[in-house]
Design a protein around this nucleic acid. Sequence first.
DNA 1: GAGTAAAATGTATAAATTTGCAACGTCATT
DNA 2: AATGACGTTGCAAATTTATACATTTTACTC
Lengths: 166, 166
Amino acid sequence: MAKGKNDRLMAIRMIIATRDISSQDEILGELKKRGFSLTQATLSRDIKELQIAKVPDGRGNYRYRIAPNTVMRQASQAEPLNTGSDLIRNCALSLEFSGQIAVLKTRPGYASVVADMVDKSQNDGIMGTLAGDDTVLIILRSTAQKQDVVYGLSRMLPNIGSKVIE
Amino acid sequence: MAKGKNDRLMAIRMIIATRDISSQDEILGELKKRGFSLTQATLSRDIKELQIAKVPDGRGNYRYRIAPNTVMRQASQAEPLNTGSDLIRNCALSLEFSGQIAVLKTRPGYASVVADMVDKSQNDGIMGTLAGDDTVLIILRSTAQKQDVVYGLSRMLPNIGSKVIE
DNA sequence: GAGTAAAATGTATAAATTTGCAACGTCATT
DNA sequence: AATGACGTTGCAAATTTATACATTTTACTC
């Protein structure tokens, strides 16, 4: 099972989203369980590339998390869109609207990745997004139509339409 | 011994919000310039307490950042307001409204500091704020008038009026 | 003021993370 | 096949960060 670097990066994201991890050696152990072969040095480089950080959790411990600085972006400043993997595409769990706000629930740890995709979906109705760990808050422009927003999102998240809570 | 621990913590927040810092020793140097006397060990503990993390910045370097609070602060619980420096005052870049929400963009890294100031501005129209890295989400009370909110903010951020996107 | 518990800090060290460098593999071109 | 550009990786060392332990300071009570 010769897995490429990209699979490894996705696996790292999944691991830190799923488990309470506080050192790179722990991540390394999880990766090896999953059949990856690498050293801690490479992992450190991967983590840098993924913008993952070791963050104090406020309860006396540390935890690896996807970088805070990808948390919020203005939709209009987005770059051209990028396909992304199925793994990412399928991690949107639900979408619910309330006035000019929409709340998009994701699998734990994926919110910032999904928020990034939402920003890149070039949707005029979206003013900006804010991502936590498993929730993306989407701020709509006052002129936005709910249907148009859902349609726009569906370009990046194909089956989002079926996840809308009415 | 000049200043208490709390002053030191505030100084650390200010330093990392203001400068591009990539190691604790650099922070230590800034603190000493400002008249604080401490060791790296104490700084490490302070950083843990403040939930500050060393985050890859996506451009090949690392930077210390305050962990974004994913929990909304209630404006009403704010302490009396505090002048703040010109540097902080001038880091609001734009302000845009959509219904009961306003999105305030700041220079990267300043959102939590600005959000803090907004909370302390004792503005009745503001229900609370949520800060990312360079964006502050301001949730307005349903009764709030946009003009009153802008006016209230201008007490903390003097030229915010000119940054409003219409 | 003496006594005591808790908090804060420094010292020294351990643990964790980053990085320079050389080596290897992949592609595209010659 | 040889060449070269480029990305990826391991190794080992350097750097950076966290922490165990001892000591000092602070805050409070008597």
